[in-house]
Design a protein around this nucleic acid. Sequence first.
DNA 1: GCTGGACCTGACGCCGATGTCAAGGCATAC
DNA 2: GTATGCCTTGACATCGGCGTCAGGTCCAGC
Lengths: 126, 126
Amino acid sequence: MRIGELAARSGTSTRSLRYYEEQGVLASRRTANGHREYDESDLRLVREIRGLLSIGFGLAETRPFVDCLRAGNASGDACPASIDVYRRKLAEVEQCLDRLTSVRDHLRNQLAIADERGERGSGCPC
Amino acid sequence: MRIGELAARSGTSTRSLRYYEEQGVLASRRTANGHREYDESDLRLVREIRGLLSIGFGLAETRPFVDCLRAGNASGDACPASIDVYRRKLAEVEQCLDRLTSVRDHLRNQLAIADERGERGSGCPC
DNA sequence: GCTGGACCTGACGCCGATGTCAAGGCATAC
DNA sequence: GTATGCCTTGACATCGGCGTCAGGTCCAGC
């Protein structure tokens, strides 16, 4: 299939697919007229990439998964390199969760305090 | 005080202060020679801005707080407009927390599955 | 008068994934 | 032959908060 069909079937854009190729995470054969030619396995690769991106992975981080699939594995995370990325990402996510959680608590506190102020009628002369 | 001192005392850079001014969240008087002149109240404004930025607010979102302080309130969140921003931000943060939490769970699952695979010795021929 | 430091404005760079426009090639349908 | 549509490469735009460089001004100390 050509790039338009791959884009449609993978729910992305031709621009993105060319970008993935430019970044070295997706390869393509070329037909005689220079058009990119893909097959079903490429569709799986793109779906893997898209799934990871949507979860918050960077494009570069998807490479081990793609390589793993290309190596013939049934799933992209069957390789140690992919697992390492999982682990790093999990650590990142957990750290981010901690930060966000404390931000949330802080916001709730401020809102609670503001509510008290509001009920007592003191405050903003704006 | 001039911009250098304000930057030092607020723990930021002169570049940032000029940027805040450019974006309309921080004002400045000018001395005869064109230099920016600040006072202690500006220091409080900048500290408010920095605090909010560090929590994940966008610069534009800090404006109500700054306006509130400039209106003579003891704290930047004494005004309804600030409270609204708090509420919007809280909603954003909670949504983000939900997403991240499910991502975290997903990652944990994948890692657990991978561990099983690893122990059984099946998998990656890379 | 010179040097150095702090200030000024203006403008480009970054990061990351993608939109979008431009200008052209090739093929299919009429 | 021409219209249409998909393909090609290349390159600029986006968003946000800054870093950083360039080139020039102003003032204090010597």
